[in-house]
């Protein structure tokens, strides 16, 4: 068991290393030098050199990579070229929008998907199954940002229940949650649709297993068989999808933040890209990748616990 965890931990660290290298190499290819961009066309070479030094842009690629990674390990994400402030601070401000949004959406996803999937699987072939399958089929096909626009159109433009976007900050938590509700719903819809379908499929697969027949033969009712033997086995494929969904929620959040003008990490990345603020883009991306890898690691741990067959690996 400990060995299995250790093995996964090492593989996670290797993934992080590879990911940091990939991001670093890719962003070094960005055309346009930040110092040129910031100081304008008429800048003196020595001013540029001084700014490069200040921004940590001198030295070989290898030194710069090691500086960057070493800094992140100490919590120093570098200095923004544009704002001339520590990137860590910028991230800290924005993460309080993005992270709650993703978690909010995840909670909504689970709240909708689990009952829907259970209902459809247990009523396979009947009206409620067809209903769930139809709605989720549509839910998967709807781009979340368009669904977000429709929500804005309905609740902000027509009904005027909420404002069309923006974020009031956490000083008034009720207002903050209100501002995040439409974005979270927009994010959750496609993910809930996917999850409900996966859960239904996994449950139906499980129902066809031999051990379900054994359970019936020893006198368990159909319902007890599903609850006691089906759910835990179906949870294993579901966990895998949940892990992947976190990645989609993060990416989706970036787009959704744009629809609702939310000052989150997505907005930070887009600003970074347009302003050639390399270090911001680089660090925020790395942070997102770290989050995804960490969640994948947690999911793997979870199903090592759920599935005794994996414990000896």
């Amino acid at each position: 068991m400990t060995r299995a965890i250790l093995k996964r931990l090492i593989s996670m660290l290797l993934s992080l290393l590879a990911a940091s290298l990939a991001i670093f190499v890719m962003l070094q290819a960005v055309p346009g030098h930040p110092a040129d961009f910031m100081l304008g066309l008429n800048a003196q070479p020595d001013t540029i050199a001084a700014l490069n030094a200040e921004l940590g842009l001198e030295g070989t690629l290898r030194e710069r990579y090691l500086d960057w990674v070493g800094g992140m390990l100490r919590g120093d994400f570098g200095t923004s070229y544009t704002y001339r402030v520590p990137v860590a601070g910028l991230i800290a401000d924005r993460i309080w929008v993005s992270a709650p949004l993703a978690v909010y959406a995840l909670v909504l996803t689970l709240l909708v998907a689990i009952p829907a999937g259970l209902l459809a699987a247990s009523r396979r072939g009947r009206a409620s199954d067809w209903g769930v399958m139809g709605v989720t089929q549509l839910g998967i096909a709807v781009p979340n940002f368009w669904f977000a626009m429709l929500l804005v159109l309905l609740f902000a433009v027509k009904l005027r229940w909420v404002s069309a976007g923006g974020f009031p900050g956490w000083s008034d938590p009720a207002q903050a949650i209100k501002a995040l509700t439409l974005p979270a719903i927009a994010l959750a819809l496609p993910q809930a649709s996917i999850l409900a379908r996966v859960l239904r499929g996994a449950l139906i697969d499980t129902l066809e297993q031999d051990y379900m027949r054994t359970a019936r033969a020893k006198g368990l009712s159909r319902r007890a068989t599903v609850v006691r033997h089906g759910l835990r086995n179906a949870a294993i494929p579901m966990l895998t999808i949940l892990g992947l969904q976190f990645s989609f929620l993060l990416a989706g959040a970036i787009i959704i933040e744009k629809v609702f003008f939310l000052p989150g990490l997505g907005q930070l990345i887009f600003q970074g890209i347009t302003q050639r603020d390399l270090i911001v883009v680089q660090s925020v991306t790395m942070l997102l990748v770290f989050a995804v890898i960490a969640v994948t690691f947690a999911v793997e741990l979870a199903y090592t616990l759920a599935d005794p067959r994996l414990r000896r690996a």
Binding site: A19, M26, A29, I254
Partner: peptide, 24 residues
């Protein structure tokens, strides 16, 4: 398979945004 896992570790749309951002 490790290479696959690595690509899967990236939030796909985020990297798509990066690629288009970097290369225009």
């Amino acid at each position: 398979m490790r290479g696959n896992d690595l690509i899967f570790a990236f939030p796909s749309l985020v990297i798509a945004i990066l690629i288009t951002a970097v290369f225009g």
